[in-house]
């Protein structure tokens, strides 16, 4: 039984996907929780995500002068913006759940490796 299975395997395609050289056959479902995107335009700076984060990786950074000036009518009161440190993020997606304006979202983009720590900060 096993022998037949083995000999069949010899002529089957290997199951291994040589990521990152090929991505065919990989599963990136819609719900996958990976890289965050923050729409700073519609963020109102309410700090809810920072308070809810179980890993304490969301920091509310004061807006710079330029950004303060560029505020639109909709976010008149906004003084801070969220910045996420992905090096310690646990990708639980709680920030996405609590966000009242739906400006913080987790995508299914999983390619995160980087040689530069600065690159792993979302929101700047």
């Amino acid at each position: 039984m096993l022998i037949i299975e083995l000999i069949k395997n010899l002529f089957r395609r290997p199951e291994t996907v040589k990521y990152p050289y090929e991505t065919e056959g990989l599963n990136f479902p819609e719900r996958l929780r990976a890289l965050h995107i923050i729409d700073q335009e519609s963020c109102i700076g309410c700090r809810k995500c920072a308070r809810a984060c179980p890993a304490y990786v969301i920091e509310m950074v004061p807006l710079t002068e330029d950004e303060l000036e560029a505020r639109t009518e909709k976010i008149k009161k906004k003084k801070v913006k969220p910045v996420i440190d992905l090096t310690a993020c646990i990708f639980c997606g709680v920030c996405e759940d609590v966000c009242p304006t739906d400006c913080l979202n987790l995508t299914n983009h999983i390619v995160l490796p980087s040689g530069d720590k600065e690159e792993l900060e979302v929101g700047d």
Binding site: L6, N9, L10, R12, P14, E15, T16, K18
Partner: peptide
């Protein structure tokens, strides 16, 4: 061959 029997790629 060992790898292919196990549905792996093996050295490549």
């Amino acid at each position: 061959i060992y790898a292919r029997l196990q549905r792996r790629v093996g050295p490549d």
